[in-house]
Simulated assay, not measured.
Amino acid sequence: MQSSEFEYAGFWERVGASLIDMIILLTATYPILWLFYRGDWERIFATGLSEQPQVFWFDILANYILPFAYTVIVWLLWSASPGKILLGMKIVDAETGQNIDLKQSIIRYIGYFPAMMVFMIGIFWVAFDKRKQGWHDKMANTVVIRNSD
């Protein structure tokens, strides 16, 4: 499949998919946090990491390791997130159109950080790029396409 044959998914479609994914992750994560913090919503919604070692490691696990592992595994299994699947999109290699591999998945995930650092410019880039790539896509050599399956 040549890259000219792709029908790229646009910015607003991808925003919609991200919102669906966020709802799914929050729905899965908040009950775990609620149980761990015994219903203390102030701690659940806190943005920092705890100074208590046992809580610090739970915060690292719940806020960084699990979302990373979940996202990479889902991309490898389905070549899309649940939100992208529901909206008919797929993440593929920008050159071959094949499913992305582990290396691309990891680079793409890590690429979100610089893409969001300065006013989310790397995310908004999708709206103006000819192949609808954000910086994370460019780093991993991926594109998000409308799934024809």
Rank of each mutant, 00 (worst) to 15 (best):
residue 119 F to Y: 13
residue 3 S to R: 13
residue 147 N to Y: 10
residue 38 R to D: 11
residue 122 G to N: 04
residue 92 V to T: 10
residue 128 F to K: 12
residue 93 D to S: 07
residue 67 P to T: 06
residue 124 F to R: 05
residue 148 S to M: 06
residue 104 Q to R: 06
residue 144 V to H: 02
residue 93 D to M: 11
residue 94 A to M: 04
residue 41 W to R: 08
residue 10 G to C: 12
residue 48 G to A: 08
residue 112 Y to F: 15
residue 56 F to P: 01
residue 52 Q to C: 08
residue 72 V to I: 08
residue 88 G to C: 08
residue 136 H to N: 11
residue 14 R to A: 01
residue 120 M to D: 15
residue 20 I to A: 13
residue 129 D to E: 13
residue 90 K to A: 05
residue 66 L to Q: 04
residue 102 L to S: 09
residue 100 I to V: 10
residue 46 A to W: 10
residue 26 L to M: 15
residue 77 L to N: 06
residue 35 L to N: 09
residue 92 V to Q: 01
residue 134 G to K: 00
residue 51 E to T: 09
residue 92 V to A: 08
residue 67 P to R: 03
residue 127 A to L: 14
residue 85 I to Q: 14
residue 110 I to W: 01
residue 120 M to N: 15
residue 53 P to D: 10
residue 30 Y to A: 13
residue 42 E to A: 09
residue 135 W to N: 00
residue 55 V to F: 05
residue 131 R to P: 02
residue 32 I to V: 12
residue 63 N to I: 03
residue 53 P to Y: 06
residue 118 V to F: 15
residue 144 V to F: 05
residue 88 G to A: 12
residue 6 F to I: 10
residue 117 M to I: 14
residue 97 G to N: 12
residue 66 L to A: 09
residue 38 R to Q: 10
residue 101 D to I: 04
residue 11 F to S: 05
residue 60 I to C: 04
residue 44 I to Y: 04
residue 115 A to F: 05
residue 49 L to Q: 01
residue 85 I to G: 03
residue 102 L to T: 09
residue 76 L to V: 02
residue 36 F to C: 02
residue 91 I to A: 02
residue 26 L to K: 13
residue 148 S to G: 08
residue 110 I to Y: 00
residue 98 Q to E: 14
residue 43 R to Q: 12
residue 123 I to F: 12
residue 126 V to R: 00
residue 102 L to F: 15
residue 74 V to G: 00
residue 117 M to Q: 10
residue 101 D to S: 12
residue 143 V to I: 08
residue 94 A to N: 06
residue 129 D to R: 09
residue 88 G to H: 02
residue 29 T to W: 12
residue 134 G to P: 00
residue 138 K to Y: 02
residue 11 F to C: 06
residue 82 P to V: 11
residue 33 L to S: 07
residue 86 L to E: 05
residue 132 K to E: 03
residue 81 S to Y: 08
residue 140 A to H: 00
residue 148 S to K: 14
residue 128 F to C: 10
residue 84 K to N: 07
residue 3 S to K: 11
residue 71 T to I: 05
residue 127 A to G: 14
residue 136 H to M: 11
residue 117 M to Y: 07
residue 95 E to T: 14
residue 125 W to H: 09
residue 91 I to G: 00
residue 126 V to Q: 01
residue 1 M to P: 11
residue 50 S to V: 02
residue 83 G to E: 03
residue 42 E to K: 09
residue 98 Q to I: 06
residue 81 S to L: 06
residue 36 F to A: 02
residue 28 A to N: 08
residue 31 P to W: 07
residue 57 W to R: 03
residue 57 W to H: 05
residue 146 R to N: 13
residue 45 F to S: 08
residue 49 L to D: 00
residue 80 A to S: 08
residue 26 L to E: 14
residue 47 T to E: 15
residue 77 L to Y: 09
residue 135 W to T: 00
residue 10 G to H: 11
residue 124 F to A: 08
residue 73 I to K: 06
